[in-house]
Nucleic acid binder design. Structure first.
Lengths: 193, 193
DNA sequence: GTCTATAGATAGATAGAC
DNA sequence: GTCTATCTATCTATAGAC
């Protein structure tokens, strides 16, 4: 703080977060190692442990960033939508983005191992529930909106995971189809066709 | 085959599979290591590599066993059900069994890394879809049954994953509630309440 | 306060003994 | 054919230099 070093340190911290996030996106939880993150950030491994003394600390920091971004992304996506079919397609797009799913799965696994990250995951889930609730209300939902939001979220998570694992090329279409059905059931009366 | 050694070898192979499965259930993909599996099977680590030359081979074998059991479990569960509410509760029970979810997640991650396991996962998903389709037909489904089955499956997967990660005590109730809604929407007309 | 070199632990695979 | 001892690679963490 006495010199301009402070700023460059923050930059460095940011750099590490970015590198960590990118590593998680590409290699998932298993490939999330200090050496890999360090290499991507252009630093040495032991450099990472300086800023984040333990692997878990690093993961918590990266997880924090991941959750914030994910919530922002959902917000941006939902905010621009007006019709059900638009929404289904947009969510299907999000859901079949493998990098996203890898980060999600990493958070799930980390939560299963460590309470600290569990809380973080809870924040993510609740945040999404809130956003989706607002969204459903806006496009004409029922009073049950919050449970519907969690329903829609669980469905989306399931579609992500199955899509990642099967890797089938028609995953996005299928997802969009199911989301369309679900949204129609939630918002309107019966589904299409 | 010339002596009774053959049988004990098969026993040993079986032993390894059991140990592998148990390890996956308790520690998930990350904790699935040769030393751990070996210890649980009462063997040495290098013993594992004899029967399964590479870590991936072991995982494929254990994955195969896991898929078979999972399909059998789903079959047994669905076979005994007659009403929608019963079904929702039973599926909620399956879905909130963390050991199950850990195995599922392991298969997903392995699939993301290796095509061999991807096919296996496809088998699992298709097998479940078939079983659920039959089930839905039995309790009075519509002609759309197969898509409905995949819908229900995706929802269940999502509920599993979210439940594992949040670890909230009301996970099972919530899951049962959503599954009830979904089943009513699929089978009958509108949901309850 | 920042960074480096190194130590300690654990995983996976192989070559070779029985 | 079965099993063991060992080697290499890789990861995390620490003690200490600048």
């Amino acid at each position: 703080m006495s010199t301009n070093q402070g700023e460059s340190v923050n930059e460095r911290r940011q750099q590490i977060l970015e590198a960590g996030l990118a590593t998680l996106r590409e290699h998932g939880y298993v490939g999330f190692t200090q050496p890999r993150v360090a290499a991507r950030a252009g630093l040495r491994q032991s450099h990472i442990t300086y800023y984040h003394p333990t692997r878990l600390d690093l993961l918590a920091a990266v997880g924090r960033a991941a959750v914030d971004r994910q919530l922002a992304a959902v917000d941006a996506t939902l905010g621009a939508l007006t019709t059900i079919d638009e929404a289904a397609d947009a969510i299907a797009e999000l859901v079949t983005r493998y990098e996203n799913t890898r980060v999600l799965m990493a958070l799930v696994q980390a939560s299963d191992e460590e309470p600290r990250l569990r809380e973080l995951f809870g924040e993510l889930v609740d945040g999404i529930a809130t956003q989706v609730t607002v969204f459903l209300g806006r496009i004409g939902g029922s009073p049950l909106a919050e449970e519907s939001a969690r329903f829609l979220h669980a469905l989306s998570v399931g579609l992500s995971v199955v899509s990642l694992a099967t890797g089938r090329p028609d995953g996005k279409q299928r997802a969009a189809g199911m989301l369309k059905t679900a949204l129609h059931l939630i918002v309107g009366g019966s589904g299409p066709a």
